[in-house]
């Protein structure tokens, strides 16, 4: 009995553990893993769900189709250029805000609340507010006129429509990362700054030689999260273009394209394939970053 029991006891313990996990497993399974596997399954099929339901296995055809889909390439290009523009700027902006708040300011808490406000506001609501600001007779154009510059048709002109979304996105996401940097800043020991000052380092020198290098883990986190977030851009371009991705595909993002194929064309198979491809792209970009940051860490 004593010999058989350790194995049995282990099993019993494990069962208890899994039972405790069961609610979480059920919830995650239903709402996370099941959809992930289902969309993997769908991506290899030609699917018709409306009317007569049919699944036809077509192998990698959906992925082959992607290479010839001009709008998919435009969407990827738009999304990538969006990330390339937004991520560095939002990171720099976040560091700047964090450094300002970390300085010994008056009314520090007041500024903290003001800076953080855009992040706690719903992005759908922000988009609607910004649509008013970007209106041809809106606040931004009036301001530009006031300082003698020419206004734009921000939402209707393909040349600037995406820029308008970029500006808004930087403004609304930077404060979240500001909080990350603020926490990291407070971890930097004052002694470092004091000794640097004794050595005669100026404010800039201290910022570039102490603050920035010590913020590297936070910066890595920010850049990774920023890239994932920007690659999944949907709501803002959806609201700005009323779902079309126009004018001239200039606000078309991959997530918006997936939505169009799934719900406008009811082509769930191809839409799932696009979603899988987007996940792969995000994963690859993140891995590359990890490699870059990790190598520098060794030095």
């Amino acid at each position: 009995m004593a010999q058989a029991s350790p194995w049995k006891r282990k099993l019993k313990n494990n069962i208890t553990g899994y039972l405790f996990l069961l609610p979480t497993i059920l919830v995650l399974g239903t709402f996370l893993f099941l959809p992930v596997f289902y969309s993997l399954y769908l991506s290899g099929h030609k699917v018709n769900l409306l009317g007569e339901v049919s699944y036809k296995w077509i192998g990698a055809d959906n992925f082959v189709r992607m290479s010839g889909d001009e709008r998919a390439w435009i969407a990827l290009k738009n999304t990538a250029s969006f990330a390339l523009f937004v991520v560095p700027l939002q990171t720099a902006f976040a560091i700047m805000l964090a450094v300002i708040l970390n300085a010994k300011l008056r009314f520090k808490n007041f500024f903290r609340i003001v800076f953080f406000m855009p992040t706690v506001t719903s992005s759908a609501v922000l988009s609607l507010i910004f649509m008013w600001i970007y209106n041809s007779n809106g606040l931004l154009n009036k301001f530009l006129e006031l300082i003698g510059l020419q206004g734009y048709n921000w939402l209707g002109d393909p040349a600037v429509a995406m820029k308008a979304i970029m500006l808004m996105n930087i403004w609304s996401t930077a404060p979240f990362f500001m909080v990350v940097f603020l926490a990291a800043l407070q971890d930097i020991p004052d002694a470092l700054y004091e000794s640097a000052m004794l050595d005669g380092a100026g404010a800039w020198r201290r910022f570039f030689s102490i603050t920035l290098p010590l913020l590297k883990p936070a910066t890595f986190f920010t850049v990774v999260m920023g890239i994932i977030g920007t690659f999944q851009l949907f709501d803002q371009s959806y609201i700005f273009s009323a779902g079309s991705g126009g004018p001239n595909n200039s606000t078309l993002t991959v997530a918006l394209l997936i939505y169009q194929y799934a719900f406008k064309n009811l082509d769930f198979g191809y839409a799932s394939a696009l979603a899988v491809a987007l996940a792969a792209v995000i994963m690859i970009v993140t891995l590359i970053q990890r490699k870059l940051f990790a190598e520098e860490k060794l030095n």
């Binding site: 209707g156 393909p158 040349a159 079309s244 126009g246 004018p247 001239n248 406008k264 064309n265």
Partner: peptide, 19 residues
């Protein structure tokens, strides 16, 4: 029509704006 319309609207606006 949804596909035809989407592509038309996207390009026609561009021509309409003179681009």
């Amino acid at each position: 029509l949804p596909t035809i319309m989407n592509n038309f609207n996207n390009q026609f606006v561009d021509a309409f704006m003179g681009n």
